[in-house]
Design a protein around this nucleic acid. Structure first.
Length: 499
RNA sequence: GCCGAGGUGGCAGAAUGGUUAAUGCGACGGACUGCAGAUCCGUUUCUUGGGGGUUCGAUUCCCUCCCUCGGCUCCA
């Protein structure tokens, strides 16, 4: 596949080539994406530590980077997207100890749940989920390399990275060593030579899981797995590193220090992307603060497609405020006003004639193309999803009037009119993610009964007995069956949570 | 204290050194409908946190003050 080849099942208007521009935290400006080995793009995003079920704050980051990967693929890049899974760490051990089970039970249970939730949200672009515990040889090798180069030192079974040997430490987060407040939030380990040093290897305490190492039995520190994984999977340098903004310091600084010291190559990642946090009542949603909404609870309150839409609203770099149910309700209304015309268009497409070419006026075809162009341009400008969505709203107004009529249509025309929606579907994941439970799977018996009732109602309407007609409609509504009249006759569907 | 990101209409939330500051939600009016819904059309509200500066012109650039959020070794 060459660059710029659309991946769509239906032809999409060609958008003129142009670079994707992304804000790079390290350089503090928007820079063009220039892959090291075009058209390949290597992308790594810091994954989660599955010690608890994940929440909608995590989902924001991962839904966003899923969209990044989808868009880059749409732009013709061959994306390889890696996410790590920190399946061994202090908190997992703590939970495992409480439950009296092996740490892997806790990690695998929560990770499996995470995968199910991500699947429901339409996150499907990750090519490799790399578990820390699957990379012990690579981790040990990288630590050894750092020790050999005297960038790290062993101390009582632990191994620490010597930050004083890496002057660029702090470049990403713009922190100067002297400005840091050691111990501001976390106790300083007395075995470190300097407070800013960080652990590469932690010696095993009594009863803890352990792996053998030249420094004694223990387990990897928090930061080392990511670079051991990326150096081996993506190489010493790669194109995009993503993660939540709160990981900038110290985690991403540590990654840079480790990888660049171990490989001697720089920069580790060409572009550092940071997704803003999800806040709740003005505070970061955080597992440790406890102000979290678990993904599974969220998905019991709101349809997955609406949740995805909500998480993608707003600029990815800014904080996104979650105001509880009100946020979901507003997102739902906003999303459905896009979804309704899309569904209508696809329905018309299914009913349309297959033969013949497009008959739409040129300005309609141009309008469709302009809309897609505007969406592509918005996404190329540092993933402005909001602007891309605004373009789709504009297009919805245009097709809304045409699609209200009952004239017969051609598929070729509808392909043109649907192109902007299909772009949103494929790239942003709108309209393609699960909606409320039974989408419309009424049994045959129910179907027959409802259709019969609607015939009775139609006869009542025809003889002007609107009282009876409305009564039938209301009674059906009470049963969760929604009836709507249109020039094409009545239609009905099961409401959310309906029969 | 230090670093970073922000403060835009009733709400959410974009954008730009220069015509009337997107878009959505809400509200109001109209068309369509027996009614409702959906759809379409129109209206509604901000002069862009306070102050100062640069400029022919700033919401957009600079300075300063106030406030919010994130980070300063648990965190997506």
């Amino acid at each position: 596949m060459s660059r710029r080849t659309p991946k769509f099942s239906t032809p999409l208007p060609r958008t003129p080539p142009g670079p994707v521009r992304i804000y790079d935290t390290l350089r503090e400006k928007v820079v063009p994406l220039e892959p090291l080995v075009p058209p390949r793009v290597g992308m790594f995003v810091c994954g989660l530590t599955p010690y608890k079920p994940s929440h909608i704050g995590h989902a924001r980051t991962f839904v966003f980077f899923d969209t990044v990967a989808r868009f880059l693929a749409q732009e013709g890049y061959h994306v390889f997207y890696v996410q790590n899974v920190t399946d061994i760490d202090d908190k997992i051990l703590r939970v495992a100890a409480e439950e009296r089970v092996d740490f892997s039970v806790v990690a695998e249970r929560n990770f499996a749940q995470y995968l199910r939730d991500m699947d429901r949200l339409g996150v499907r672009s990750v090519n490799l989920y790399a578990r820390c515990t699957d990379y012990l040889p690579e981790i040990l090798e990288q630590i050894q390399e750092l020790v050999d180069r005297e960038m790290a030192y062993a101390a009582g079974g632990d191994v620490y990275f010597d930050v004083s040997r890496f002057p660029r430490f702090g470049a990403l987060s713009k922190q100067r060593k002297e400005d840091l407040q050691p111990g501001a939030r976390v106790e300083v380990d007395p075995r470190k030579r300097s407070p800013e040093d960080f652990a590469l290897w932690k010696s095993a305490k009594e009863g803890e899981p352990r792996w053998e190492s030249p420094w004694g039995p223990g387990r990897p520190g928090w930061h080392i797995e990511d670079t051991a994984i990326t150096v081996n999977v993506l190489g010493p340098r790669y194109d995009i590193h993503g993660g939540g903004t709160e990981l900038k310091f110290p985690h991403h600084e540590a990654e840079i220090a480790q990888a660049e010291s171990a490989t001697g190559e720089s920069p580790l990642a060409s572009i550092w992307m940071h997704a803003g946090v999800l806040t709740m009542q003005g505070e970061k949603m955080s597992k440790s603060l406890g102000n979290v909404l678990d993904l599974s609870s969220a998905l019991s309150q709101v349809a997955p497609d609406v949740l995805r839409f909500f998480l993608l609203s707003g600029l990815y770099r800014s904080p996104l405020e979650f105001a509880g149910t009100a946020s979901f309700e507003e997102a739902e209304r906003a999303y459905r006003t896009l979804e309704r015309p899309y569904r209508r268009g696809e329905e018309l497409w299914r009913e349309a004639r297959e033969d013949g070419g497009p008959t739409l006026p040129e300005e309609v075809k141009a309008g469709s193309r302009r809309t897609v162009d505007r969406m592509v341009e918005a996404l190329r400008a540092d993933f402005n999803i909001r602007e891309a969505t605004a373009a789709l709203y504009g297009w919805s107004r245009e097709v809304g009037a045409r699609w209200a009529s009952v004239e017969p249509r051609r598929r070729a025309d509808l392909d043109v009119e649907l192109a902007p929606y299909r772009f949103a579907r494929d790239v942003l994941g709108y309209f393609s993610v699960g909606t409320y439970a039974p989408p419309a799977a009424p049994g045959d018996l129910l179907k027959a009964l409802v259709e019969d009732l609607l015939k009775v109602r139609q006869r009542a309407r025809e003889r002007g007995d609107f009282g009876e007609a409305d009564r039938i409609r209301e009674e059906l509504a009470d049963l969760g069956i929604r009836v709507e009249d249109s020039p094409r006759g009545p239609s009905w569907r099961l409401e959310r949570g309906g029969t």
